[in-house]
Nucleic acid binder design. Structure first.
Lengths: 334, 334
DNA sequence: GGCGGACGTTTAATCGTTTAAACAAATTTA
DNA sequence: TAAATTTGTTTAAACGATTAAACGTCCGCC
């Protein structure tokens, strides 16, 4: 890699000190520098194709203009769309993004956060896995700017941007009930993550509010790694009850997608008699032979607000804000 | 952000020079350092929760252990899966990934490459948009390690990892013909990108080799930004010919997905009489009411080989390698 | 008893910037 | 005309690491 030109190269070419070059190129000391010298410096910089070394700059200023992003899995559309939005917003505000996937593992998440911090990111946007609360507390204690997205820890007061999962779930299930569904099952993750618990709570409250007493089997829990077999099993339980469910709520689009595959291969007799509702969008919902309604998270708002909130913390605003966005219920019916 | 501990802090705590601390913590000069001092240093590092400042280290060593990744759009599953594979492989080899999306824009790609280089990445993995050939030539001239993935420029000799698109396309179309299809249309991008041209070439050769003379209208070109209306229009042309096509090849999963939506909403009379074949996978293919075969790119191989090849270049191996991977044809038929 | 080597550690330069402070020369002010 | 100010530029330290070279000490050896 051919040696890049540095301030010093420009300085010696023009015959001035590096300080002056730095001032000119950064537009400081506006009034003080003579027009001619400034022009000479700028021309030389152009000719030598100068680009500042961010490492050196950051080392000196202790600002990297970089934010770290920890998602569950960048290959999951939810994460990658969020990442894209954050990338764009960060770019707009002069920041670069470094990312990593935690795979819902507390250990990986910790490693990632350390790696990102060693690279001196100015702040972090984190979608924390279960069990990462200590890491978050640590960050808070150390005064590192960070914002949680999509998930939060109820007993940690810090910046977070989430949807109101309890409300969204409640409204979704209410909708099913108003449409005449009486036996509503749910397949969701067996996880301590509060936002997932909130979905369960909302579901339960909607049923209770309508005097429906759900038998235990209506709630099926599966592992967070989206094991197909597990999800298929959950489906078969729900559909083979003495009184089978007439609607199912899925805790995520991944679960929904596996469940649809189950329905597809097992050609359930009358799929129009089974209402389906998922959290998060998926392209496959458009093509399934029965309509799938879903709770749509406002990803754009989430990503942008998270980025802006983080930057305001980086730039010194203090406080902590728990933002609750409202999710839309997208209804698909034939 | 509370001041992090530096080598100096450890040095002064233990009462030695920073050099010694550096040697110990990096495991250099194995034999020379006294066990006790080494232990004291390690203990102090532990107690002070020391983490090296990568900026400083990189500035001195001129190695950042970071690679830059330029994809078309990280929110596109093709990109994000590739990104994930590269992330994992890079991590395994001690590297971090910084990414950016070019949106198929030559200008954005140039900006991105500059931004990544200013951050002193050790090398780049690039999925270049059309018109980026000059940028690539530039990189080559400057001796910056880089590897192209998925795409290449035929008149630039440099490292690249792609599938053999011409062959894949040829085989796919041959397959359709062997299955009795006679009137095979194609919807693909109006782009100079060579790998897309290769797909067209393979398609043409398969037809020619079977004495099929495609009328111009069989080949429908659409813009690279996947405009729905354009794709729907292309579909309507193909299906409303005096002699409509009996099979369609889609240049990408995005095109396929829009086309399927068209078929879905326009309830084409006999979809089983229309064979569909796409490049790249998509979850929606599983749920469409007619089978969609597809050319499956070996993403894992692509990502891993790209990463490894890049690292070997970074570490000094010279030469340039154009790797052609073989894609699988996944056949779905009812 | 002087010399050479091993041992354990320190010195000091360096990477490419930024930036407060110092400086000399020109200009204004009193 | 001396003092004060402005103007344009330089000096030099700093950021936090790495690393070749230098430095004492102690030891053994002839």
């Amino acid at each position: 890699m051919q040696k890049k030109t540095s301030l010093k190269d420009i300085a010696s070419k023009v015959g001035v000190s590096t300080a002056l070059v730095s001032y000119v190129l950064n537009g400081r000391m506006e009034g003080r520098i003579s027009k001619e010298v400034a022009k000479k410096i700028r021309d030389a910089a152009e000719k030598l194709n100068y680009h500042p070394n961010h490492l050196a700059r950051s080392l000196k200023t202790s600002r990297t203009n970089t934010i770290g992003l920890v998602v569950a899995d960048i290959s999951n559309p939810f994460s990658s769309m969020l990442a894209r939005i954050i990338e764009d917003e960060a770019d707009r505000l002069g920041y670069t993004v470094i990312f990593g996937s935690s795979d819902e593992s507390e250990v990986k998440s910790a490693k990632l956060i350390t790696a990102l911090r060693n690279r001196q990111v100015d702040g972090l946007i984190i979608c924390p896995p279960a069990g990462a609360d200590d890491q978050v507390r640590q960050l808070k204690k150390q005064g590192i700017p960070f914002v949680l997205v999509d998930r939060y820890f109820p007993d940690i007061s810090c910046d977070s941007i989430c949807i109101d999962n309890e409300q969204a779930s409640f409204r979704a299930v209410e909708h099913l009930i108003r449409c005449g569904r009486q036996r509503i099952g749910m397949i969701t993750y067996d996880s301590a993550l509060q936002h997932l618990q909130d979905r369960i709570t909302g579901y339960g409250q909607a049923l209770a509010g309508n005097n429906i007493k759900p038998p235990d089997q209506w709630k099926q829990l599966v592992g967070i790694h989206n094991d197909q077999a597990e999800i298929h099993h959950a489906m078969s339980v729900l559909l083979n009850l003495k009184k089978p469910v007439d609607a199912i709520v899925f805790g995520s689009n991944r679960i929904a997608s596996s469940a649809l595959k189950y329905l597809d291969t097992n050609r359930v007799k009358n799929p129009s008699d089974l209402w389906l509702l998922s959290f998060d969008q998926s392209e496959v919902f458009d093509f399934f032979h029965a309509p799938v309604s879903y709770v749509s998270q406002p990803l754009m708002e989430m990503g942008q607000q998270a980025t802006r909130l983080l930057l305001s913390r980086i730039n010194g605003t203090v406080g902590s804000e728990r933002v609750l966005l409202t999710a839309d219920l997208i209804i698909r019916q034939s």
